[in-house]
Each structure stands twice: as C-alpha cells, then as structure tokens.
Amino acid sequence: MGCDGGTIPKRHELVKGPRKVEKVDKNAELVAQWYYCTLSQEKLSRPIVACELGRLYNKDAIIEFLLDKSSEKAIVEAASHIKSMKNVIELNLTDNPAWNGDKGNTKGDKYDDLQSARFICPIVGLEMNGRHRFCFLRNCGCVFSERALKEIKTEACHRCAVPFQDDDVIVLNGTKEDVQVLKTRMEDRRLKSKLGKKPRKPKGAETVVKSDAVEDSPGPSKAYTEKDATSMNSGEKRSIAFCKGAAVEGSTLSSSGKGSKNAPGPLKRSIINQEEKSEVYKSIFTSHSSAKRSKEESSNWITHTAYYF
C-alpha cells in the first residue's frame, strides 16, 4: 500500500514505540546557571548576589521580588527561601582580563566561546564558566575556586583577610548533595538566630515597670532656696500653662466645699490676689483686667473659649 506520491511507509513510521528520553545539553545547562539570573532569567550584571544555597541572582531582581507583595505574585521555587535581603550576600568577583564582553557582530555569524567567562579566581586564575567548582565566603562575599581553598589552607580570606570557618564556605551551583548539605546548614543557622533573640516585653509590662520606678524614686524637696526662686522667676514664661492650670484648680477647690474638706493643706490663692506678685507678671494671665475686652472692642459674633472669660 503506497501513498499519493508512490512511497512505501516503513514500520517505524506507522508503529509508535516508546519515546526517547530527552537529554539536557550540558553546555546549555552550564550557560543557564553561570551566565543568567536564576530568578529573572536575564544576563547576570553587577551587583550580583548569591543565596545560602549557592544560586546566582541579580540584586535588582531580588529587590523587585521582595517588594512585590501582590496576591498574583508567582511562587518561584528558586527564591522561596529568600525572605529578606539578609538572606543573600553580595559577591566580590574578579574580572577576567581576557574577556571581551559582547563585542562583535550580533547578526548570527558570531561565535560564542563558552569557555571564556567574565570572572576568574583571583588565586589560581581558573575561569568561572561551570567547568570548575567555585565557592564564596558568607562573611565577606569573596569568590574563589575550590582548588585554591584546598591547596592554600588558611583560616582567613585570601583577599580581604576576614576570618572564616568551614561552615561559611558555600559552593556555587553545586550538585544535589551539595544543595542538601547547604539547606541543612541554612535551617540550623536560622534556628539558632531565632533562639538567640530576646523575647520582647509587652507594652503593658513596660508601663507597669516605669510606674513602679517613678513611685520608688524620691520626690523633690519642698524647701526652696534662693537659687531655686531666681530660676523659677527666669522660667516663668515657660511655665505659664502650668501656673494657669494651678490657678484654675485653686479657684475650683475654693468654690466647692467638698474639695476644701478633703484638702490636707491650705488652698492655693489666685495669682491676681497675691500681693507679692507684680502687675507685669499678673498681666500675663487672662484673668487680669488688662486681658478682658470691653463690649465696644468685642465683635458681634463671639466663639466662647476658655480665653474669652
């Protein structure tokens, strides 16, 4: 049985067998991990940050991800463990002098050398293209190749001399086993930080403690010296509101019989009735005769306030 063109189909064209497992191109996978942001899938550009699991991101993409608090926010597994900017570390990378960048013709006839990387190890000189294992220090963010850390064993950073421990070394774009180890370290580190924080006291407890402290503290002495009297006279303008309140309180106590019975000491006299005060000082208060307006000076429409009487 032939087709319209006279061709004879073969068996593999008619019978569908099992599908072949698609293999991921290793070069394409390395380029996606080491040349592009894990979150935004854009080319890595400084400033570059890395999380505690060793993944590379653009700092701008992380900031936009954290600021987006809408309900339609896409849940990305690669950044689900990042809750704030404290969970990422900005990397101190060393530029590759042999890297020419994106120069050249971009119409399709350009050859992209995947072996050439933008950054290198400052100690050994290996290029950070995914062919070699690279690490960074969580304390300072400096990036080195794993070979340099193994060959030159030290407890301080080779670049900035910041001390570090083995737990502070994080592998960039490691294997599944490396990611699992880094994940357990991250969870332990966050648990320790939570336990180390002191619990905050409620506001009610703080007010009670403050009130107790005020009651326990000794009050001011009642005897005034000549220096205190002079300081009071100099600060009379600042304490006008307080004196006014005291005068109103004394007048109300004198008018009501209950307040006079419960009062332990003599009632306070009004400042206007105090003879030892000068007229200039008395004119500050609204109860003075100079502060009262006559009917001719007052307007027809009056808003009754405490300062009117």
Results as ranks from 00 to 15, higher is better:
V169T: 01
N173S: 02
N173C: 07
G174R: 00
T175E: 01
T175C: 01
T175G: 03
T175Y: 01
K176S: 06
V179D: 03
L182S: 01
K183R: 11
E187Q: 13
E187A: 10
E187F: 09
R189G: 06
K192Q: 07
K192P: 00
L195A: 07
G196R: 04
K198A: 07
K201W: 01
K203E: 08
G204W: 13
A205L: 14
E206D: 06
K210E: 14
K210D: 12
S211D: 13
S211R: 15
A213S: 11
E215H: 10
E215S: 11
S217N: 11
G219K: 13
S221Y: 08
S221I: 06
E226K: 07
K227I: 05
K227W: 04
D228A: 02
T230P: 00
T230L: 10
M232I: 11
M232W: 06
G235V: 02
K237Q: 05
R238G: 02
R238T: 04
R238A: 09
I240N: 01
K244T: 15
A247V: 11
A247N: 13
V248F: 14
V248S: 14
V248D: 15
G250I: 01
S251P: 00
S251G: 07
T252M: 15
L253P: 03
L253S: 15
S254K: 15
S255A: 14
S255Y: 09
S256L: 14
K258L: 14
K258A: 13
K258W: 11
K258R: 09
N262S: 08
K268H: 11
I271Q: 03
I272W: 04
N273A: 13
E276L: 08
K277L: 15
K277C: 12
